[in-house]
Design a protein around this nucleic acid. Structure first.
Lengths: 233, 233
DNA sequence: CTTTCGACATGACAATTGTCAAGTTGACTC
DNA sequence: GAGTCAACTTGACAATTGTCATGTCGAAAG
């Protein structure tokens, strides 16, 4: 089932990229390849982890359902991202649920394979730690955003992360639903709409899922200057 | 310098608790013991990690300084907590700064010791992963709180975590500054004050650094019922 | 082609939170 | 003991955000 192109994507993931070829081949040959429809569940909160997951195509969201039934989006993963590493290695329940937000293709590496390989070569542990650290880092960045930035600033930063270039103008496509973007940025869809219209004053125009940024530097300085609670004396 | 009592605390940390005695002794014998004054810096964002840190006494805060100069508290650690594991093993810069918020006593395990031991026994890797996962989990919980709860609810949950018992009344001491509590919960000190007074209606009274909770269950249902954006149809 | 439905935008309103400006209090210094 | 200072509290106000209601639009189904 797996094509070479898919394997190539998996090989570029942080989890696998720095491992010796021999180990990568072992892992790839034991992996399970699967397709998911939009909206399909990958795993549920509290379930016990049996594998590490690598996204080959599409978008996956990790989220938590609060006791009151509200949903909090924790992360959104794309092609080449892996998730569930730390959980898979320790037989503990997932702290989050995972769902395909578009048609997806995933690769699952069964945790027993990973564990046995790790006993042979501690280098595997380092790779897993590297991926886990990446997630840790992105959560820290998200916390900083939520605690120290206004909604519009978070949206601006989200757009900046989509840009390839560093300056001048730039056109990008919104990678997924505005509803999901809102969730990812910790706001309601209505607030996202308002944030978008507020960004018009710094040269951002949104049309459908297409964003037109007339000046990247202007947008960047909006994120950094417009102090919401910045003690910028 | 290290007393047996301090070693005992270190041994209870998630990092060390499940390791074979022999390894623990090796790590403890190579560790550096140090005292810190209130306000002293442990390390700074962007610095390269040279050790894993274990709190033996006092309180440590991890925080990020945003480009605008605002501070976002990421976590607060107490006796028996370890931090910096994932960073120490990979020679990467810290994503956060660390500061003693009270007089503190720390143990530092130099990363080379950890790395060489890990090459002998992959079990060390599992332990480090266990600690890292704990941090990951607590960040996820924090994100959920910020995205799905009001300020007063976060304060209520913070208080609940301080309680020993499960029901009835309960008196607790606030472990640190209200300023730091506010930061940890992602709000301004003024908002914390107001949240406290709002909680009076559910039987919580604050006096100095002392909190009196007249009914734990009532407080818990305040967190879970009072839906801020809970789709509780 | 028409119907239907969900994603999205917008306006009006309420609730929450940040900001600024006092004022209080306790700890610490001299 | 007087004075100083930082940690709070509180009130008034502004800004931001959630909530609810309504309307538009486009995609998919019939």
């Amino acid at each position: 089932m797996p094509h070479e192109a898919q394997k190539a994507i998996a090989r570029q993931s942080i989890l696998l990229r720095s491992l010796p070829d021999q180990h990568v081949e072992t892992l790839l040959s034991h992996a399970i390849w699967r397709q998911y429809d939009r909206g399909e569940t990958i795993f549920l909160q509290e379930e016990t982890a049996k594998a590490v997951h690598v996204v080959l195509a599409g978008w996956i969201k990790l989220f938590r359902i609060t006791p009151t039934g509200a949903e909090a989006v924790v992360s959104v993963f794309k092609r080449g991202d892996s998730f569930g590493e730390a959980v898979a290695l320790r037989n503990v329940p997932y702290p989050v649920s995972a769902e395909a937000v578009s048609a997806c293709e995933l690769m699952h590496i069964p945790s027993p394979i990973l564990i046995s390989l790790m006993k042979e070569d501690p280098e595997i542990g380092i790779s897993i730690l590297a991926s886990t650290f990446t997630h840790l880092h992105s959560l820290v960045a998200q916390l900083e955003q939520l605690k120290a930035q206004t909604g519009a600033q978070r949206v601006a930063e989200f757009l900046l992360n989509l840009c390839d270039s560093d300056e001048g103008r730039c056109d990008v496509s919104l990678p997924y639903d505005k509803m999901l973007i809102a969730g990812r940025l910790g706001m309601k869809p209505e607030s996202l709409s308002r944030a978008f219209s507020r960004l018009k004053t710094v040269g951002v125009n949104i049309n459908r899922n297409h964003a037109e940024i007339s000046d990247i530097d202007a947008l960047r300085s909006y994120v950094e200057d417009e102090s919401p609670s910045g003690k910028s004396w």
